[in-house]
Computed example of a mutant assay.
Amino acid sequence: MTEAEFRALALGLPGVVEHAEQDHPDFRVGGKVFALLGRPETTWATLLLSAEDQPDIVAACPEAFRPAPGGAPGHTQVHLSEAPHPRVREALIAAWRDKAPRRIRDHFRE
Protein backbone atom coordinates (compact mmCIF):
# COMPACT_ATOMS: atom_id res chain seq x y z
CA MET A 1 0.00 0.00 0.00
CA THR A 2 1.34 3.41 -0.94
CA GLU A 3 0.31 6.86 0.24
CA ALA A 4 -1.33 7.44 -3.14
CA GLU A 5 -3.33 4.20 -2.88
CA PHE A 6 -4.42 5.06 0.67
CA ARG A 7 -5.50 8.53 -0.48
CA ALA A 8 -7.44 7.08 -3.43
CA LEU A 9 -9.25 4.58 -1.20
CA ALA A 10 -10.19 7.26 1.33
CA LEU A 11 -11.34 9.76 -1.30
CA GLY A 12 -13.32 7.02 -3.04
CA LEU A 13 -15.74 6.83 -0.12
CA PRO A 14 -18.90 8.95 -0.35
CA GLY A 15 -18.78 12.48 1.04
CA VAL A 16 -15.05 12.43 1.83
CA VAL A 17 -12.88 15.52 1.55
CA GLU A 18 -9.17 15.88 2.13
CA HIS A 19 -7.97 18.57 4.48
CA ALA A 20 -4.50 19.52 5.73
CA GLU A 21 -3.96 19.91 9.44
CA GLN A 22 -0.46 20.60 10.79
CA ASP A 23 1.08 19.70 7.40
CA HIS A 24 -0.53 16.25 7.46
CA PRO A 25 -3.47 15.32 5.23
CA ASP A 26 -6.58 14.11 6.93
CA PHE A 27 -9.79 12.73 5.51
CA ARG A 28 -13.19 13.85 6.71
CA VAL A 29 -16.80 12.93 6.22
CA GLY A 30 -19.54 15.20 7.53
CA GLY A 31 -16.82 17.42 8.98
CA LYS A 32 -15.40 14.59 11.13
CA VAL A 33 -11.89 13.19 10.74
CA PHE A 34 -11.74 9.43 10.23
CA ALA A 35 -8.20 8.98 8.82
CA LEU A 36 -4.85 10.76 8.77
CA LEU A 37 -1.94 10.23 6.41
CA GLY A 38 1.66 10.57 7.52
CA ARG A 39 0.96 9.93 11.19
CA PRO A 40 3.02 9.10 13.18
CA GLU A 41 5.57 9.12 10.32
CA THR A 42 5.42 9.43 6.54
CA THR A 43 5.18 5.67 6.00
CA TRP A 44 2.18 5.38 8.32
CA ALA A 45 -1.46 6.37 8.49
CA THR A 46 -3.84 6.53 11.42
CA LEU A 47 -7.47 5.43 11.40
CA LEU A 48 -9.99 6.62 13.94
CA LEU A 49 -11.87 3.37 14.40
CA SER A 50 -14.48 2.66 17.02
CA ALA A 51 -13.13 0.91 20.11
CA GLU A 52 -15.32 -2.06 19.12
CA ASP A 53 -13.86 -2.41 15.60
CA GLN A 54 -10.20 -1.96 16.52
CA PRO A 55 -9.44 -5.39 18.08
CA ASP A 56 -10.73 -7.37 15.08
CA ILE A 57 -8.89 -5.20 12.55
CA VAL A 58 -5.61 -5.37 14.47
CA ALA A 59 -5.94 -9.14 15.03
CA ALA A 60 -6.63 -9.79 11.34
CA CYS A 61 -3.34 -8.20 10.25
CA PRO A 62 -1.04 -7.42 13.23
CA GLU A 63 1.99 -6.85 11.00
CA ALA A 64 0.26 -3.80 9.49
CA PHE A 65 -2.15 -2.52 12.17
CA ARG A 66 -1.53 -1.60 15.80
CA PRO A 67 -3.30 0.49 18.44
CA ALA A 68 -1.80 3.99 18.54
CA PRO A 69 0.42 4.22 21.63
CA GLY A 70 -1.12 6.73 24.00
CA GLY A 71 -3.93 7.37 21.52
CA ALA A 72 -7.63 7.52 22.21
CA PRO A 73 -9.54 4.22 22.18
CA GLY A 74 -9.88 3.05 18.59
CA HIS A 75 -7.02 5.11 17.17
CA THR A 76 -5.13 2.63 15.02
CA GLN A 77 -1.84 3.05 13.20
CA VAL A 78 -1.34 1.46 9.79
CA HIS A 79 2.14 0.66 8.48
CA LEU A 80 1.40 1.28 4.81
CA SER A 81 4.18 -0.81 3.31
CA GLU A 82 3.00 -3.85 5.28
CA ALA A 83 -0.73 -3.34 4.77
CA PRO A 84 -2.59 -5.38 2.16
CA HIS A 85 -5.02 -3.37 0.04
CA PRO A 86 -8.17 -5.34 1.01
CA ARG A 87 -7.46 -4.97 4.75
CA VAL A 88 -6.86 -1.23 4.47
CA ARG A 89 -10.05 -0.80 2.47
CA GLU A 90 -12.00 -2.76 5.10
CA ALA A 91 -10.50 -0.68 7.92
CA LEU A 92 -11.08 2.63 6.10
CA ILE A 93 -14.72 1.72 5.54
CA ALA A 94 -15.11 0.86 9.24
CA ALA A 95 -13.59 4.20 10.29
CA TRP A 96 -15.68 6.05 7.70
CA ARG A 97 -18.91 4.35 8.83
CA ASP A 98 -18.21 5.36 12.42
CA LYS A 99 -18.05 9.05 11.44
CA ALA A 100 -20.32 9.37 8.39
CA PRO A 101 -23.72 11.01 8.78
CA ARG A 102 -26.56 8.53 8.57
CA ARG A 103 -27.92 10.09 5.35
CA ILE A 104 -24.62 9.23 3.59
CA ARG A 105 -23.91 5.96 5.38
CA ASP A 106 -27.32 4.45 4.64
CA HIS A 107 -26.81 4.74 0.86
CA PHE A 108 -23.33 3.21 0.75
CA ARG A 109 -22.93 -0.23 -0.80
CA GLU A 110 -19.53 -1.92 -0.56
Score class of each variant (00 low, 15 high):
residue 65 F to Q: 04
residue 44 W to A: 09
residue 65 F to M: 06
residue 29 V to P: 00
residue 24 H to D: 04
residue 65 F to Y: 10
residue 94 A to V: 03
residue 18 E to N: 12
residue 84 P to I: 04
residue 19 H to G: 06
residue 107 H to S: 13
residue 101 P to L: 12
residue 58 V to K: 14
residue 60 A to Y: 00
residue 57 I to D: 03
residue 70 G to Q: 08
residue 40 P to K: 12
residue 47 L to W: 03
residue 4 A to G: 02
residue 76 T to E: 04
residue 10 A to P: 00
residue 105 R to W: 07
residue 13 L to G: 02
residue 79 H to Q: 14
residue 69 P to L: 06
residue 75 H to G: 01
residue 21 E to W: 00
residue 15 G to L: 09
residue 33 V to S: 11
residue 73 P to I: 07
residue 46 T to S: 12
residue 44 W to C: 08
residue 7 R to M: 01
residue 81 S to D: 14
residue 87 R to H: 08
residue 31 G to D: 14
residue 98 D to F: 11
residue 55 P to D: 09
residue 8 A to I: 05
residue 109 R to E: 06
residue 54 Q to D: 03
residue 76 T to M: 10
residue 12 G to Q: 04
residue 38 G to V: 04
residue 80 L to M: 14
residue 29 V to H: 02
residue 16 V to E: 07
residue 48 L to D: 02
residue 39 R to E: 13
residue 74 G to P: 02
residue 37 L to I: 09
residue 29 V to L: 05
residue 49 L to K: 08
residue 40 P to S: 11
residue 18 E to H: 08
residue 69 P to Y: 06
residue 76 T to I: 07
residue 57 I to V: 15
residue 79 H to T: 04
residue 85 H to A: 13
residue 32 K to S: 15
residue 25 P to S: 12
residue 69 P to R: 14
residue 90 E to V: 01
residue 66 R to P: 00
residue 49 L to D: 03
residue 92 L to P: 00
residue 12 G to M: 10
residue 55 P to E: 13
residue 26 D to Y: 00
residue 85 H to M: 05
residue 63 E to S: 11
residue 4 A to N: 05
residue 10 A to Y: 04
residue 10 A to H: 10
residue 11 L to Q: 10
residue 92 L to A: 11
residue 2 T to H: 03
residue 91 A to Y: 10
residue 107 H to V: 11
residue 15 G to P: 06
residue 41 E to S: 08
residue 48 L to R: 14
residue 28 R to A: 07
residue 71 G to V: 12
